[in-house]
Amino acid sequence: MFKFKEPSQETREIMSKVALGEIANIDFEQSAIDKIRSLTNHSEVKITSSGNNSIFIALSSVEGDIIIPDQGGWHGFKQIAKFLNKNIITLKTDLGIINTDYLDELEINDKSALIFTSFAGYTAEQDTKAISKYCKSNSITTIEDASAGIGDSEKKLGNGKYSDIILASTGSPKIINVGSGGFISTDDEEILKATSLPQKLSKTSDIICSGIDSELDNVKENLELALNATCYLKKCIPSAIHANKRGVNIIIPHEDAKSISWNLKKSLPTDKSGFVTTCPNYNRVKQKAIAIEVKNLDYSCLKKEYLDKILEELKINNLQ
Results as ranks from 00 to 15, higher is better:
Ser8Ala: 08
Ser8Lys: 06
Gln9Gly: 06
Glu10Arg: 03
Glu13Cys: 01
Met15Asp: 02
Lys17Glu: 06
Glu22Phe: 07
Ala24Lys: 13
Asn25Glu: 14
Phe28Thr: 15
Glu29Cys: 12
Gln30Glu: 12
Ser31Trp: 03
Ala32Thr: 02
Ile36Trp: 14
Arg37Cys: 12
Ser38Val: 09
Asn41Tyr: 11
Asn41Thr: 07
Glu44Met: 07
Ile47Val: 13
Thr48Pro: 15
Gly51Phe: 03
Ile57Val: 15
Ala58Pro: 15
Gly64Ser: 05
Asp65Trp: 02
Gly73Phe: 06
His75Asp: 05
Gln79Pro: 00
Ile80Lys: 11
Phe83Thr: 08
Asn87Lys: 15
Thr90Asp: 06
Leu91Arg: 03
Leu91Ile: 10
Lys92Leu: 06
Ile98Met: 07
Glu105Ile: 01
Leu106Gln: 10
Leu106Gly: 08
Glu107Val: 08
Ile108Leu: 04
Asp110His: 01
Ala113Gly: 10
Leu114Trp: 07
Thr117Lys: 01
Ser118Glu: 04
Phe119Gly: 14
Gly121Thr: 03
Tyr122Asn: 09
Asp127Trp: 01
Tyr134Asn: 03
Ser137Trp: 01
Asn138Pro: 09
Thr141Gly: 10
Thr141Trp: 09
Glu144Lys: 04
Ala146Lys: 00
Ala146Met: 07
Ser147Leu: 12
Ala148Val: 06
Ala148Asp: 12
Ile150Phe: 05
Ile150Pro: 02
Glu154Cys: 05
Glu154Pro: 02
Lys155Ile: 03
Lys156Val: 13
Lys161Asp: 08
Ile166Asn: 05
Ile166Cys: 09
Leu167Pro: 10
Ala168Asp: 04
Ala168Trp: 05
Gly171Gln: 13
Ser172Ile: 11
Pro173Ser: 14
Pro173Thr: 13
Pro173Met: 13
Ile175Tyr: 06
Ile175Phe: 12
Asn177Asp: 13
Gly179Asn: 13
Phe183His: 04
Phe183Ile: 01
Thr186Ala: 08
Thr186Gly: 11
Thr186Leu: 08
Ala194Leu: 14
Ser196Cys: 08
Ser196Asp: 07
Gln199Lys: 02
Lys203Ala: 15
Cys209Lys: 14
Cys209Ile: 00
Gly211Ala: 06
Asp213Met: 13
Ser214Phe: 06
Ser214Trp: 09
Glu221Phe: 02
Asn222Met: 01
Asn222Asp: 08
Asn222Ile: 00
Ala226Val: 15
Leu227Gly: 04
Thr230Asn: 13
Cys231Thr: 14
Cys231Gln: 13
Lys235Gly: 05
Ile241Lys: 10
Ile241Ser: 12
Ala243Lys: 14
Arg246Tyr: 12
Gly247Ala: 03
Ile250Asn: 13
Ile251Leu: 10
Ile251Gly: 01
His254Val: 10
Glu255Asn: 09
Asp256Cys: 03
Ser259Tyr: 05
Ser261Leu: 02
Ser261Glu: 05
Leu264His: 12
Leu264Gln: 11
Ser267Arg: 08
Ser267His: 06
Val276Ser: 10
Thr277Pro: 00
Thr278Gln: 10
Thr278Pro: 02
Cys279Ile: 00
Pro280Val: 02
Lys288Arg: 14
Ile292Trp: 11
Val294Lys: 02
Val294Glu: 01
Val294Asn: 00
Val294Gly: 04
Leu297Ile: 15
Asp298Ala: 01
Asp298Met: 03
Tyr299Gly: 05
Lys304Tyr: 07
Lys304Cys: 00
Asp308Gly: 02
Ile310Cys: 03
Leu311Asp: 12
Leu314Ser: 11
Lys315Tyr: 03
